[in-house]
Write a protein that binds this DNA or RNA. Sequence first.
RNA 1: GGUCUCAUCGUCUAACGGUUAGGACACCAGGUUUUCAUCCUGGCAAUCGGAGUUCGAUUCUCCGUGAGAUCACCA
Length: 480
Amino acid sequence: MTSVRTRFAPSPTGFMHVGGVRTALFAWLLAQQAKATGEGTFILRIEDTDKVREVAGSIEQIENSLKWLGIRWDEGVDQGGPDAPYKQSERLDIYKEWAQKLIDAGRAYADPYTQEELEAFREQAKAAKRPFLFRDHRPENPPVWDGSQPLRFKSDPKPYQWTDAVMGELSTGEDAIDDFILIKSDGYPTYNFCHIVDDAIMGITHVLRSQEFISSTPKFLNLYDALEVDRPTLATLPFVMAIDGKKKLGKRDGAKDILEYAKEGYLPEAMANFLATLGWNDGTEQEVFTMQELIEKFSLDRVQKSPARFDEQRLLWLNGQHIRALSLDDLYTRVTDFWPASAAGASEESKKQVLALVQDRMKTLADLSILTSYFFEEPTPNWEMVSSNKQLAKLTNDEVHALLEEAKNSLSASDFTAEAIQATLNNLLEITGQKPGILFSLIRLAVSWAPFSPALNDTLATLGKEVTLQRLQVSLDSLK
RNA sequence: GGUCUCAUCGUCUAACGGUUAGGACACCAGGUUUUCAUCCUGGCAAUCGGAGUUCGAUUCUCCGUGAGAUCACCA
């Protein structure tokens, strides 16, 4: 019987980008996996203790992002749970209580210095080429903490050695530990303090977070000791790096809102697949995973230690793979917002027929419009497309005219099933003595005027005899 | 500067100390008797450097080098 409780604890400072989402995904996968054999719980906790940086609407946006990806939480701000509230700004009393325990134990004290004095200490250390440590300036007789000063942790500096579920054995010297602030002078706790309190209260078993926290981990370990709480399994995830440069992906470096990808026609399961395999693999050569497979196969010990770059090409490829894996009906429900405007009046039946034709060619749902518009609206002849085609450019206007005329005649006698059309077309090859590359390309353009389209016989069959012949005529007429 | 982490094709990655260093994306070339962004086949392409341990290091150790993180009343 395993019990896994994980949490995703974002601060509401804006939209979510792929790095943050991946952390959430991994934590969620772990909890889902545990559900199969025991207890698994995934918690969404909002860390809103910095009122200055808070951005209105962020919580809703975070929730929408997770929902889009298919991540559901068992406990959270919107639905509550046994450890409610799940918003840190509503848990201030709890942190005060825990802070008092530390004060009583002589492990916390009021910081009597002004900003200026603090700054002077920093300058001093810098001038002396020494690291700045607040604990070098611990006041001998700190005032009684009345809430107007910051409350600091009285650390117990010592070397630490610990095991990280991803990084393995880690260690630091005592310089990594300092008297950090537990509660700010505005009454709100710092992340360093309250996340540890909450994780303990909520019984979090696995803490997943990104690499930037690795150097503050010794502080956390020191606090766990002072609080006398068991520490959870710590797992440090490597960065997701920006596509170019070598910087970690961040909002200021052009990281996109994850919901942007939804608008661009990416499937959530493709995004999940991509994110999961960015820094993780199952040890086989499998590249495409369903959500269910990810849940079953994910493991922290196969997570990469080194940062990975965000490769949109691979995401695009995966998206195509997942689109092709969808049933037609499923795909149909996903593309609702992606049809060309001209398809508005088309019936579900005809739209599905068209969709079936292009499913294999779509890489994003947004491709649908360019791929299908000519099924729903009359294309405008663009002879530029003929003259810029290597093979077709060799034909004279008279030859083009003759070929299309011939095609029109043959097709008007066809039964117009896909099979019958193929037979007609093959016959046409013999009559005209043309190569398929020329004849078929020409017909394709004359009825669609699109850069690419499905197999010619399927395209014509879907358009129907009447439309096909009419479009051939329109094209003929437009040819001077 | 202190502390800490990381290092295999362009990118994502695989490889009990023994493999012609494997796969995928991208790219290139063919094929699937039309286009093509699907599909199939093939090709290109990597162990950061130097010592050491070993019969044998991508793998273990050390030293470099490079990259990154962190040193906030931000999370």
